[in-house]
């Protein structure tokens, strides 16, 4: 963790699914100045650009717990359910996810289809 924190040079996080890219300032589970807050996965973190408060963080993404692909936290690219799963792995193992999630994804798929057609 020490090592990543000392790296001040701008590094860029890029989602391997949607291509979203943004510089990050920290990788790990305990971003600076977060006190009681702990992340439950190793995340790419940046300072929240939309908050005037410099100490607010923003999680950009992390690696898929199954395939280790680097994905952003956007709902089109990944899903967190005790662990991070990229959407590809989610659809591959959809049957292992709870009903609520399955339903949700099915609904989303339908609405995005409707939007396309």
């Amino acid at each position: 963790m020490e090592k990543t924190m000392s790296e001040t040079r701008q590094k860029t996080f890029t989602c391997q699914l949607c291509g979203l890219s943004s510089p990050f300032t920290y990788v790990g589970q305990k971003p600076p100045n977060t006190r009681a807050i702990v992340l439950l996965e190793e995340c790419f973190v940046t300072q929240d650009p939309f908050s005037p408060d410099k100490e607010k963080f923003l999680v950009l993404g992390s690696t898929c717990s199954v395939c280790s692909m680097c994905v952003c936290v956007g709902s089109d690219c990944s899903l967190f359910y005790t662990k991070r799963f990229c959407m590809q792995c989610v659809s591959k193992h959809l049957d292992q996810f709870p009903r609520q999630i399955q339903a949700e994804l099915a609904k989303k798929k339908q609405s995005s289809k409707a939007a396309v057609s």
């Binding site: 807050i37 439950l40 996965e41 199954v66 936290v73 967190f80 359910y81 292992q96």
Partner: peptide, 26 residues
Amino acid sequence: RKTGAGALDLGLPEEYDARYRINVSV
């Protein structure tokens, strides 16, 4: 929910809880 034979077990909890979808803990 069933795990197909031979497929990778993701080790997800049995019971659904929205809490599991949050990657932060306090």
